[in-house]
């Protein structure tokens, strides 16, 4: 990594208002390529909105979002995805009537170059078949390949959500509370899965479970009322007085 390389994700004084209500109020964030970066903050701080702004689900009111140095704010989600950024959703967001196999396959048809092809048999694409099988193996759903995604258990749907997000091979992965609602054992498995699937990629994660955050992240940013109040290594964040006051103190109480 040369020091002059642009950050994988950079937010520059990003603001987002809904009517008169300003949710994101001058947000600055920089995530280096290959880094595992967590965003933490109390409920309503604007974590999911931040994800929505980065992934193109919403356009910022002002400010700039850059992916590998290129401005992406204002682009539609599919163009941002094509530039190598993929995100998951806090509420499971899969293709409910399609099988697990079809779900994962749909997630990699674009990046394998098959796009809108209506002249190829989708079952006779060896590259697609191999990668789909590999990802199903990775997320532990190989035995459930034929089951409609809507019939999976909650933990399985969360695993599928991560599978869909990482399937396309995006360099930058955004995960929105991937372990929310999971048991302790399920959380451990999910963290191991995330670690494995994001190997060599840039990861930005929103998470409430502090053990996950401090165990997984190289760097942590603390978001309070639409602004980053601190950004640093887990140790720096743990010892930051403002963070303790604004966030961790509340947690400990």
């Amino acid at each position: 990594m040369t020091p002059s390389a642009p950050p994988a994700i950079a937010l520059d004084d990003v603001r987002k208002s809904f009517g008169r209500l300003e949710i994101i109020r001058g947000l600055n964030l920089s995530v280096a390529a290959g880094e595992r970066h967590a965003i933490i903050g109390p409920n309503g701080a604007g974590k999911s909105t931040t994800f929505n702004l980065i992934s193109g689900y919403m356009a910022p009111t002002s400010g700039e979002v850059r992916l590998d140095g290129q401005v992406i704010s204002g682009l539609p989600p599919f163009q941002i995805n094509r530039r190598g950024l993929s995100r998951s959703f806090q509420v499971t967001n899969v293709f409910a009537h399609m099988s697990v196999w079809e779900n994962v396959r749909c997630a990699l048809l674009w990046t394998t170059g098959h796009r809108y092809a209506f002249w190829k048999n989708v079952d006779r694409l060896p590259d697609v078949r191999e990668r789909t099988a590999m990802i199903l193996e990775d997320i532990g759903l190989a035995a459930r390949a034929e089951v409609p995604a809507g019939l999976l258990t909650y933990a399985e749907q969360r695993a599928l959500e991560i599978g869909i997000t990482t399937a396309g091979g995006a360099k930058v992965i955004l995960l929105d509370e991937p372990t929310a609602g999971m048991s302790h054992a399920e959380t451990e498995r999910a963290v191991a899965l995330i670690r494995r699937l994001t190997e060599g990629r840039t990861l930005l994660i929103v998470e409430h479970d502090m053990s996950v955050v401090f165990g997984l992240a190289d760097r942590i940013s603390v978001l309070v009322y639409g602004q980053i109040i601190a950004s640093g290594t887990p140790d720096q964040i743990r010892n930051d007085a403002r963070v303790q006051e604004a966030y961790l103190g509340v947690e400990a109480a």
């Binding site: 992934s55 293709f95 409910a96 399609m98 809108y116 869909i164 396309g168």
Partner: peptide, 28 residues
Amino acid sequence: YALTRTPFGRMCNAVRDNPERVQFVGYD
């Protein structure tokens, strides 16, 4: 019938099930 078995045909199903998510796997 053949059309339903193509990458495009599958993405039609995906758009039917969840047009929002389709955008986050690269499709318009």
